[in-house]
Simulated assay, not measured.
Amino acid sequence: MANKDKVFDVIMAISDIIEEKKLYLTQLDAAIGDGDHGLNMAKGFGAAREKLESGSFQTPSDILKAVGMALISKVGGAAGPLYGTAFLNASKVVAGKEEIGLADFTAMLESALDGVKSRGKAVRGEKTMVDALEPALDALKAALDEGTAPEEALNRAVKAAEEGVAFTKTIRATKGRASYLGDRSIGHEDPGAMSSYVILKTIAETCSR
């Protein structure tokens, strides 16, 4: 499904799309949070891009680890530690591997999600990025069990994440700054869930090329 060159391409594509959508993500965050999510994410993935373009990396794990470290060191707010932990956890799952298959990616997403939930003390249904990532993981696991082709499995995961984002619009925030709004947070999509969906969609699209 992906070697180190493909993983490099995926990160470059994520950096591009986050830069493109940074104002949109920031507008989502301005409605219920600090109003800096998109700008912080663009800064973080911009730093990851610079790190990858200026270095030499031998395996997919090396690339993912570099991204995780860049996000943790360069991104303010909650996004840096959460996304950084996600990428670091994913890198550990495929340490030493030259190729990432669907089973590997599923395990990577599971470890990434575990890291996010542990670090953010969050569970599904609290209007966070978990509401996009966990349905995506469930879809991947089901597809893997059914022997689904990687491209179709990734598409199912993206669809599940998109539905998860829509779900966040219907619920009250109970985590982070958005929780201060109480019922007024209902009607707004969670920016972290949206950025998670955007990243998963970009992974799927880049891996299918």
Rank of each mutant, 00 (worst) to 15 (best):
A139F: 02
I63K: 00
K43D: 03
K169H: 07
A122W: 03
D131N: 06
L154I: 08
E53Y: 00
K21G: 01
E126W: 12
T148H: 05
G187H: 12
C207L: 15
K6T: 15
E151F: 04
K4Y: 01
K127I: 15
R177L: 10
G147H: 06
T174S: 08
D34N: 05
V94G: 00
L181G: 11
L109S: 08
G68V: 07
K65C: 00
G164S: 05
K74G: 07
S91R: 01
E162G: 06
A107G: 08
G120Q: 07
A153I: 04
K43I: 14
K175L: 13
E126S: 09
D190P: 12
S56I: 15
N89D: 03
A178Q: 01
E50D: 14
Y197R: 02
G80K: 07
H37A: 12
A161C: 03
L181I: 03
R184T: 04
A79I: 07
L140C: 10
F45S: 11
L28Q: 14
F57R: 01
G115V: 04
V7H: 00
G55D: 05
L82S: 04
I199D: 07
A149H: 08
D183W: 08
A107P: 12
Q27K: 15
E162V: 11
A193D: 07
R49H: 10
I72H: 11
G115T: 02
G182R: 06
L52D: 02
D131Q: 05
E20G: 10
G55M: 06
C207N: 12
M1W: 02
G68Y: 11
P81H: 09
E151H: 12
S91Q: 00
G76W: 09
G101E: 09
E50M: 14
A157E: 14
S61R: 00
E134F: 07
I63S: 00
H37G: 11
L28N: 13
E162T: 09
V165E: 06
A161W: 01
G46K: 04
T59I: 01
Q58W: 00
F105H: 04
G80T: 10
V198I: 15
P191T: 08
A136H: 03
K43C: 03
L88S: 04
A86Q: 02
I17M: 07
A112T: 13
M129L: 13
Q58A: 15
G33T: 05
G35Q: 05
M41R: 05
M108W: 04
D36L: 05
K21M: 10
A48Y: 05
A31Y: 03
T106V: 12
V158K: 01
Y24L: 12
K121C: 11
S195V: 09
R119I: 13
T59W: 00
S61C: 00
L137E: 01
S73W: 10
M12S: 11
G192V: 09
K22A: 03
C207Y: 12
G182A: 07
G120S: 08
L137M: 06
D131H: 11
D145Y: 04
M41A: 06
A142M: 10
I14H: 05
P135S: 06
A42S: 15
M69S: 09
A42I: 08
L82K: 07
E189R: 13
K4E: 02
Y83S: 02
P60L: 01
G120M: 10
L88C: 11
A86W: 01
S185H: 08
